[in-house]
Write a protein that binds this DNA or RNA. Structure first.
Lengths: 192, 192
DNA sequence: GTTAAACAAGGTCATTTGACCATCATTCTA
DNA sequence: TAGAATGATGGTCAAATGACCTTGTTTAAC
């Protein structure tokens, strides 16, 4: 589990071996079963999370019980709720495993130490934030602009691998459309 | 124009007077007329932009001619297209003035110098990025979750002052609903 | 291996939404 | 000040969408 992470780090940033060792030594490994939560809405996000393998989802549940998915996080990516983590306030989203997953956790204080001690790691962290911002923007446009067909097509294009790993209802919850609409789209596409 | 900006800086960050002077000396003031563009989709975003007064919008126009608004930027806020600015690649959005506006511009190289020379300014910049991220998240949920009524209600709650400054069609373009739907909502609300 | 749960998909129907068009009011411009 | 442009709203109608229910299948859990 740690070797996968170390390999990821080595390919992503120009880090001395010693630094890589240190970062991974301080990680807390954890195994998640399907549907197991890392934290629930109302709790505070206390860790940075790296997904070694598996798939997580970040979502919000309305009082009416509807689920809206903000983000999927597959293997070799990071996740957390930024606002809750930064300010240590209760989160309004939950993060849970879609598939059985292996993850690594760092406590905020630990992670901050690493950031100050290892400049190249700080740089990597900043790059990840940037990518996240670009990505959110793009997603906002997609949600705003499209007909359901276009949203679905965008999803397939951007995340071709996810289709087979996710129940359709989660894709619908991600796209902001009803599952009925989604199956209708798929139905008409099959006929072509 | 510069004094307003200097006042803003003084209240937002713990900056020595000398630093404030320096930052504002390097700003390029510019006056925008209604509907005047700062840059258009396809061009590169070369500046950080501070709105002294007025109101800008960041938007995207589809090939079908539909406009989708990502963001409104009122007085005493910053704006730019992050991805285009960071990577100096063509932007897929445009930024234009909704009202006659006074703005300040800094070239990327100038701004970077300021960031490295003035740590407290760098800190402010990071705070602004964070807030932006929180804000995007929140907006994503709103767009995903709501009925048009809820989206409109959220808009009124979050930006009470904007309603009177914006044409309704822009509010519709921001919420991702048709103007017909928006007027219908307003109509039924009037009757209650 | 059996039972239970989760899931995809289809049917039906009421409601919502958007496209298109016309009208009236307001604002800007020459 | 007249004329043009912009903007808000309403009418009408067709299409899209979601809620609810049922069925058949796949997947997970014990």
């Amino acid at each position: 589990m740690l070797t996968e992470f170390e390999h990821y780090l080595a390919t992503q940033a120009n880090l001395p071996n010693e630094a890589i060792r240190k970062i991974s030594t301080l990680a807390m490994p954890r195994i998640l079963r399907r549907n197991e939560f890392i934290f629930r809405a109302g709790e505070i996000c206390r860790h940075k999370i790296f997904i070694v393998n598996g798939l997580l989802r970040t979502f919000n549940t309305t009082t009416a019980g509807n689920e809206h998915i903000l983000q999927f996080s597959p293997e070799l990516t990071w996740t957390l709720d930024v606002e809750s983590y930064d300010r240590q306030i209760p989160s309004y989203v939950s993060i849970a495993a879609v598939e059985p997953s292996n993850i690594l956790l760092w406590h905020k204080s630990t992670f901050n130490t690493l950031l100050t001690e290892i400049p190249a790691f700080k740089k990597l962290a900043e790059q990840l934030i940037s990518r996240n911002i670009y990505h959110s923007r793009q997603r906002m446009l997609t949600i705003l602009s499209g007909t359901p067909e276009e949203k679905y097509a965008d999803f397939i294009r951007n995340y071709p691998g996810f289709l087979s790993r996710l129940p359709l209802r989660m894709i619908a919850a991600y796209l902001g459309i009803s599952i009925k609409t989604l199956t209708r789209i798929r139905h008409t596409q099959l006929q072509r």
